[in-house]
Design a protein around this nucleic acid. Sequence first.
RNA 1: AGAGGGGUGUCCGAGUGGUUUAAGGAGCACGCUUGGAAAGCGUGUGUAGGUCUCAAGCUUACCGAGGGUUCGAAUCCCUUCCCCUCUACCA
Length: 423
Amino acid sequence: MLTIPFIRANSEVTIQGLTKKHVANATEIVNQLLSMDDDRKALLQQAEALLEKSNAAAKEIGALMQSGQKELAEGKRSETAALKSTIKEREEAAKLAEKAMLDLLVTLPNLPHSSVPQGKTAEDNEITFTWGTIPVLDADAQPHWDLIKKYDIIDFDLGNKITGAGFPVYKGKGARLQRALINFFLDEAIQAGYYEIQPPILINEDSGFGTGQLPDKEGQMYVTKEEGLYLIPTAEVPITNLYRDVIVNEKELPIKNVGHTPCFRREAGSWGAHVRGLNRLHQFDKIEIVQIQKPENSYAALEEMSQHVQGILQKLGLHYRVLRLCGGDMGFASALTYDMEVWSGAQNRWLEVSSVSNFETFQANRLKLRTKIDGKSILCHTLNGSALALPRIVAAILENNQGPDGIKLPEVLVPYTGFTHIS
RNA sequence: AGAGGGGUGUCCGAGUGGUUUAAGGAGCACGCUUGGAAAGCGUGUGUAGGUCUCAAGCUUACCGAGGGUUCGAAUCCCUUCCCCUCUACCA
């Protein structure tokens, strides 16, 4: 969430930023927001002036009662009783004005960093780096949805039976490969200085608000009926919300956390080849890295996180590229996002496997996550990234490494799997 | 899940309707004292909003959260969350 003082001091920058993110009528919205804030302040001042009067009167009555001057006290009492309804009315009006302003404010996305390219769709993203080469496969190379059947390692039919579409069952070497990847990714993160967290995978409404899933994006999350708890779409939500309503000691920054969780996404919508097999699931596993940084260090941290993810992809030997997302393709809360895409040999297309973002103060403002520098409390910067999401990595490994003697696993995974081939 | 007891500042802890402007203690910071330290003494010590060019000052709210009663609520009432003890259940 943007802050009103920022918008007030930088209204032109705000309008430009919102426009880059394709918010319609940015100018009108900013003006409306500022005038709503003026209303709020005016009502608040009225209410507080009356409150001050009434507080003073109450104190006087107290003193009169103590010294036994009952009649004077009675007189005062009826006087200030009359104030009550006006105070209540003004307070309510101020509260309503604040709510109206906040309701509008929370709908605004974060402003993009100056390096974010103009553009509307994925076509407009900027390719900043490419590593490796397209793997050379036999003419009869199969897509992963055929390979998983051939080797009987991931079963969608069983998932359909016990749950529904998009909930695969991993079996045998498929299950062991999952476990190997999870441990490998966690170990890599720990080696890079991250602290491991195992959070709950159900979260409450306040947490959903803190990282920006709520309001508005409820539809993308599963909810429990009785308690109204949400199944997390990513470990970013619980791990970042650990720091909700916290003033972090400056000495503790940066904070670097990593966690593995299952992730749940309703993703109601499209069908077809692009969402076939492991390409898009309702439940999948992901290792997420989260950083909390001082503002001046957050962009260096973003680069570091990007390098971390790339290092893993290189160890796995996967041909990948890095995209700098354009204004229209970026997430709601992000100021700058890099997507990592790996080449899928049999589908002949790029698959997004990681997204690393700097949210600057956007989440921190919602979370009330601050630190104190020189006695002043300021909002921290939050960042996160997938390091990495499993299903599409599995898809790429299966497709790119297939051969006559089965699927050859990357060397780096063998200590984790205990086998070299899936055959 | 049932019965009972709790939730107060950085921490401990007092406080059952009005000098509580949240006592007292500890911690922390600064100063005095000292050869230096400890002790001692003194001062300060939260968050958010408003007013203000800035600061100071003034002011409003905050005693788990939300609402209510009252001229006045940490204190009384209602709802809710969390913790502890016992019982039940369970991995």
